[in-house]
Write a protein that binds this DNA or RNA. Sequence first.
DNA 1: CTTTGGATCGTCT
DNA 2: GACGATCCAAAGG
Length: 200
Amino acid sequence: MKAVRRSALARPSTEVAPELLNKMLVSGPVAGRIVEVEAYRGSEDAASHAYRGPTARNGVMFGPAGHLYVYFTYGMHFCANIVTMTEGVAEAVLLRALAPVQGIDLMRVRRPAAHRDRDLCNGPAKLCQSLAIHRDLNGVDLLARSSTVRLLDDGTDPPTSPVASRRIGINVATGLLWRFSVPDDPNVSGPRSLLTGTPR
DNA sequence: CTTTGGATCGTCT
DNA sequence: GACGATCCAAAGG
């Protein structure tokens, strides 16, 4: 497993996002391969948490690349982002789905509602449950060897032609094709119909 | 397969 | 005081 260079992440999230596909996300004994992401940008993206400037919640997005931005939503769920760009510029890539690779038994214990393996990490809050990512991990450096959650490269290249589609779960700035996924991967979240074409 | 409504509370207006 | 970068079970095709 190679390390991911911070310089590779210190670029616009729309460029970094598709390159994160097929990278490994490791959390202690549990690991998965990234198969679906969404890019969010600060000032120019009305759907971004950072659109209206820094707050107590989104502070990590304004920090250096390679750190984990964890937020709490809907009164019960956590979602995780990888911060991109340089310090002071708030951009991030939301992790939407993983292919379970390691520690699947533990994932199943953490997510009793998952009936099939593909239900373990096929959503932003689901993967946080399976990997035990919660509030306390907000701000963790994914590139530090000492971190419990890490981003690694096992040598698998990103897909040559990633699927680009509309972002899910937002009510503004729809229409941008800033959701990227691995073609035909069964762990990608949401209905298949949202991947084909650009309906609405 | 798709659609619908309820759960539940931190965050920002 | 309103609303989520969501999930799940249930119900309908």
